[in-house]
């Protein structure tokens, strides 16, 4: 296997991340410490895992507006089952991930069978998942979650820095998903579907199956994110996922994945998620209101989408 230099699309976000780190490192002594960077990773892990599913969907030229709400549903299902119904923890976790996967399946079926636009489908499931979560939990936070369910929120020591297990889970997910995307036929088919659906179909790729699979796998990612969210906060929160919902899309776009499908890489998404995390953490450290973080993220998103649009126009020979 020949190692290729990262393309401009993946290099840009990386440069932005390094510059942001350098900036906050100069402004705050605490920013570049191991403990603080570990906190950044811990803050990023939930949205990072959601963004894996979101990347897969955006690569097929779709979008999932429901991701954060679906995650909240998964978190409420697994904690409620374990706390209020005494369901064994592994089974409760399985049910939570099953619930998010089922929503993914519904999204996928609506997109592939009824050929509805993903934007509208997931706008619908966004509201359905939110309402279901509120109704199922009576809008109450589920507390007294068993320790075994929050185990991934535990830490281990590397030198003087404690690292959360969930971060390792997130990094493993990125590695496995990157392998599948770049080294297997299934991954190449996903890119082909996003790149030119008709060409993919004529090449003998079962395009509806690829699309359906992507939405189902994305649902599983949201379930895993739900588990990490519960582990991080220690509770089942019916209002979780509201920030993550759009942050996941932001991470994907910042990471250089094209909203038009077929172009991009998961590594970029991880970088994009880290950019969001670094700005949030860094601006807090130097005492700037978190509203500015939202402002900066907005500007970055528009820059990233503009760069994508520009690359598309420039890169295509007509």
């Amino acid at each position: 296997m020949k190692l290729r230099l990262p393309s401009a699309a993946t290099l840009g976000p990386l440069v932005a991340l390094v510059m942001a780190c350098a900036f906050f490192g100069m402004r705050s002594d605490r920013f570049l410490t191991g403990d603080n960077l570990s906190i950044v990773l811990q803050q990023v892990m939930v949205v990072g895992v959601i963004a894996v599913g979101q990347t897969l969907i955006i690569l097929t030229a779709g979008v999932d507006l429901s991701c954060g709400m679906v995650m909240a549903l998964g978190g409420i299902v697994m904690t409620t089952l374990a706390v209020e119904h005494g369901v064994p923890v592994p089974m409760a976790i399985g049910c939570g991930i099953g619930a998010t996967t089922a929503v993914g399946l519904v999204n996928g079926l609506l997109v592939t069978r009824l050929k509805l636009p993903p934007f509208i489908v997931t706008l619908g499931t966004l509201n359905i998942a939110f309402a279901t979560t509120q109704l199922y939990s009576n809008a109450q936070t589920v507390t007294d979650v068993p320790d075994s369910m929050t185990a991934l929120g535990g830490t281990f020591q590397v030198g003087n820095t404690s690292i959360v297990y969930g971060v390792v889970v997130m990094l493993l997910l990125y590695m496995v998903a990157t392998y599948v995307l770049t080294q297997t036929a299934a991954g190449r088919h996903l890119y082909a579907v996003g790149n030119n659906l008709e060409a993919a179909r004529l090449s003998g790729i079962a395009t509806p199956r690829v699309l359906l699979g992507v939405y189902v796998v994305a649902g599983m990612c949201y379930g895993l994110a739900a588990l990490l969210s519960v582990a991080r906060t220690g509770v089942g929160d019916p209002n979780a996922g509201q920030a993550e919902n759009l942050e996941a899309i932001t991470a994907v776009v910042l990471g250089g994945t094209s909203l038009f499908g077929g172009r991009g890489a998961l590594f970029g998404t991880l970088v994009g998620a880290l950019i969001v995390g670094v700005f949030r953490n860094g601006l807090t450290l130097i005492g700037v209101s978190s509203v500015y973080q939202v402002l900066v993220t907005g500007v970055l998103v528009i820059l990233a989408v503009a760069a994508d649009q520009f690359a598309r126009r420039g890169g295509r020979a007509t």
Binding site: Y179, Q183, T184, A185, A186, R188, H189, Y191, A192, N195, N196, E198, A199, A200, L202, S203, G204, I205, G262, R263, R316
Partner: peptide, 30 residues
């Protein structure tokens, strides 16, 4: 009917990809 962002080799073998021999190909689908 080609996928523009994909490479020539990927387009040529689209839908007919070749896998590695042995466990890498069979188990890891490489």
């Amino acid at each position: 009917a080609v996928a523009p962002a994909m490479s020539i080799a990927e387009n040529l073998f689209l839908g007919r990809e070749l896998r590695r021999a042995g466990a890498l190909g069979h188990v890891f689908r490489m």
